[in-house]
Structure formats: structure tokens, C-alpha cells
């Protein structure tokens, strides 16, 4: 398999007052193109930190992060921002959306960074919202949407600019089982039909079953890496 995301000896420390907190320690991990990986581990084990490093939101203190064989730029904030806009889509546990904008406007945000006509943008946004099953909710504000619908709008925003990688930090953490299943099915579709490479942080055993592979972190170290026999909704 083509190794798309390569984490090589990555460490990350944070300063908390006088203490040095070890968030990640010498992590090595390869994720293939079009792989769907579940990232698990107790709270504080470094899951979000790892995700932010892959997404170029943060830079490692040691080691290298390579995407598609190229080390991601540790350059300026602007360079990293441009890289994110091109290559990754983020989905968080909650409050993904800007409350004063409609679903359509929220999804449009990444496209405002592109040279596109307003009509092009609108068409693209509509198509993507339709894809996530919300073609009829264009003008709804976040407070007029259910939790599951909000997460699907967030997914639409994450994929609207066609990135290869989706980084999801507990995307179903706040959802009831039914909504969670819808979101997981949608992510699975994005892998199967749209060739996305997905890294999903989750605490939920059930959710991780949808992935092809599970990785478990503990105290900043990678402890278990297992392939699932079959990644399907049970």
C-alpha cells in the first residue's frame, strides 16, 4: 500500500508553568492512501495533538511528518494555512459551525479562500450539502439544525474544497446512536466513493469498527495498531 501519511519519531511537548508536559513521544505511524483509521486512547493521551500535527495546525518538536512523501512545511503561519486549505478538512466534536451563518454560508467559508465566481461557489456548496443529505436545509442556522445535521454540515464544509485527508476529532462524541450511525456511514461513503484518507479520533468501540484499522495511544505513545478484519457498520 502507498504510505500517504508518515509520522517519523515525532515528539511534542507543552509547557505548563514550570512543567514540561509530554504530549507525544517518539511516535511512528504510517497511514496509507484511502485508509480509514480510528485513533483511540484515554483522555490526555495525545490524540488531538497528533491530529493537529498531521493537519499542520501545530509543528512537532522532534521528528518529521510527511504527507504524500513530502514533509509538511514548518514555514510561516500563512504557508501552513494555505497547506491546510488545500489538503485537509477538519471536523470537531461540537461547535463546528459559526452560529450567525446559515448551513450554506458555513460550507462556503473554505471556498472564500479560492479564486471562484460566486455562482461557482454556490453550485459547489449546494452539491456538497446535497451529498450529505441536507439539500433542503441550505438556509438553516446551526440552532435550527439537529446535532447530527450540524455534524453533516461540518463534514460538507470539510470536503467542499476537495482535500485528500479528513481529520475528525470525536465527530460522533455528542450524538445519539442513530445520528452517530448516519455520520459514520457518511464518512465510510467518503472513503469508499471519494477516496478520502480519514483519521478519526473516537472513544466509542462501535464507531471504531467502521474504520479499517485502529490505533491506540497511551501517554503519548503508540501502544496498539491493529487492522480490522472488515470495516463495516455492524
Amino acid at each position: 500500500m502507498l504510505m500517504y501519511i508518515q509520522i517519523q519519531n515525532v515528539s511534542k511537548f507543552y509547557r505548563k508553568g514550570a512543567n514540561r508536559v509530554k504530549a507525544l513521544e517518539k511516535v511512528n505511524l504510517d497511514i496509507g492512501l484511502n485508509e480509514f483509521v480510528a485513533l483511540k486512547g484515554p483522555s490526555g493521551s495525545g490524540k488531538t495533538t497528533l491530529m493537529n500535527l498531521i493537519g499542520g495546525l501545530d509543528t512537532p518538536d522532534a521528528g518529521r511528518v510527511l504527507i504524500g512523501g513530502k514533509e509538511i512545511v514548518h514555514g510561516s503561519d500563512r504557508q501552513r494555512a494555505n497547506w491546510r486549505a488545500e489538503n485537509v478538512g477538519f471536523i470537531f466534536q461540537f461547535n463546528n459551525l459559526l452560529s450567525f451563518l446559515t448551513a450554506e454560508q458555513n460550507v462556503e467559508i473554505p471556498l472564500l479562500l479560492r479564486r471562484m465566481s460566486s455562482a461557482e461557489r454556490k453550485n459547489k456548496v449546494k452539491a456538497v450539502l446535497k451529498l450529505v443529505g441536507l439539500g433542503d436545509r441550505l438556509n438553516h442556522k446551526p440552532n435550527e439544525l439537529s446535532g447530527g445535521q450540524e455534524q453533516r454540515v461540518a463534514i460538507a464544509r470539510a470536503i467542499v474544497a476537495d482535500p485528500c485527508i479528513l481529520l475528525c476529532d470525536e465527530p460522533t462524541g455528542d450524538l445519539d446512536k442513530e445520528s452517530a450511525d448516519e455520520v459514520l456511514a457518511l464518512l465510510r461513503t467518503l472513503k469508499e466513493s471519494f477516496n478520502k484518507t480519514i483519521l478519526m479520533v473516537t472513544h466509542d468501540q462501535h464507531a471504531s469498527q467502521v474504520a479499517d484499522r485502529s490505533i491506540i495511544l497511551n501517554k503519548g505513545k503508540l501502544v496498539i495498531d491493529q487492522l480490522h478484519s472488515c470495516g463495516k457498520l455492524t
Binding site: 493537519g55 495546525l57 503561519d77 500563512r78 501552513r80 494555512a81 494555505n82 491546510r84 486549505a85 488545500e86 477538519f90 470537531f92 461547535n95 463546528n96 459559526l98 467559508i109 473554505p110 479562500l113 464544509r157 474544497a161
Partner: peptide, 16 residues
């Protein structure tokens, strides 16, 4: 802060 962080994740630089 939350809004700015989300926009930053989406690809907006701090300068922008």
C-alpha cells in the same frame, strides 16, 4: 476564540 480557531483549521492564516 472558537470561531477564529475553526477558521484557522479551515485554512485562514492568522494574518488573514
Amino acid at each position: 476564540r472558537r470561531e477564529l480557531s475553526i477558521l484557522s483549521a479551515v485554512g485562514y492564516s492568522k494574518l488573514r
